[in-house]
Design a binder for these strands. Structure first.
Lengths: 102, 102
DNA sequence: CAAAAAGTTAGATAACAATCAAACTATTTG
DNA sequence: CAAATAGTTTGATTGTTATCTAACTTTTTG
């Protein structure tokens, strides 16, 4: 299967990024990727079906927060840290820090 | 009229804050308040009706982003900069900076 | 008190989003 | 090739949100 589409760094839209992060499930995905690096979709252990999780990954991908690499039967996801930092300096760090509190 | 309810500093919810900021109209309100200080609802000149704007102010207020002070026939709104900085350090600054780009 | 001004609230509508089950696609392995 | 695995897509459902008009509340002012 082909690699899905990812927006360019300089086309990242702040509203889309903030919207994607405003969902607790998606935030949790981002937190896990921030802490553990590249992860396949199936390894998150979140309380939803595959279909729902696939939807959340799509939202994150289309907002430019994650990159999905296809290898064999897996999709490996990673946070687009550099792109996010270049486009929105300090934002990801502040969000991750904030999400670590109660 | 009585002052509307505002959430406490330590009860601010990150998801609610990010969601509130993910709407371009609301982000514009926040930007104006960040730049110009306290403003009455009617002074924003945004392309919506009073009712819609009132709705957006309510979302911002309930997320804890703004404070609304009632004085006579006006509602003066201000950004809760200190509260936001205390609860989510660096977040508002990064968002405002990011929203200033294209 | 009547009218104006500034917002809010209620009710309606239309668009959007989250979720799931079921069907599907692609890859690996027996 | 058949089965298993990993994830996507489709279609349906349900709930949420943005928006508007119209009616309402509160305060100020003639």
């Amino acid at each position: 299967m082909r690699t899905p589409h990812h927006p360019e760094r300089n086309q990242l839209d702040l509203s889309a990024v903030l919207y994607a992060l405003s969902d607790p499930t998606r935030m949790e995905v981002v937190r896990r990727l921030a802490g553990e690096g590249e992860l396949a979709c199936g390894t998150f252990g979140l309380p939803t079906t595959k279909a729902t999780l696939s939807h959340h990954f799509k939202v994150l991908r289309e907002a430019g927060l994650i990159h999905t690499r296809v290898e064999g039967v897996h999709r490996y996801n990673s946070l687009r840290k550099q792109d996010l930092e270049a486009r929105f300096p300090g934002l990801l760090k502040a969000v991750l820090k904030a999400s670590g509190q109660s």
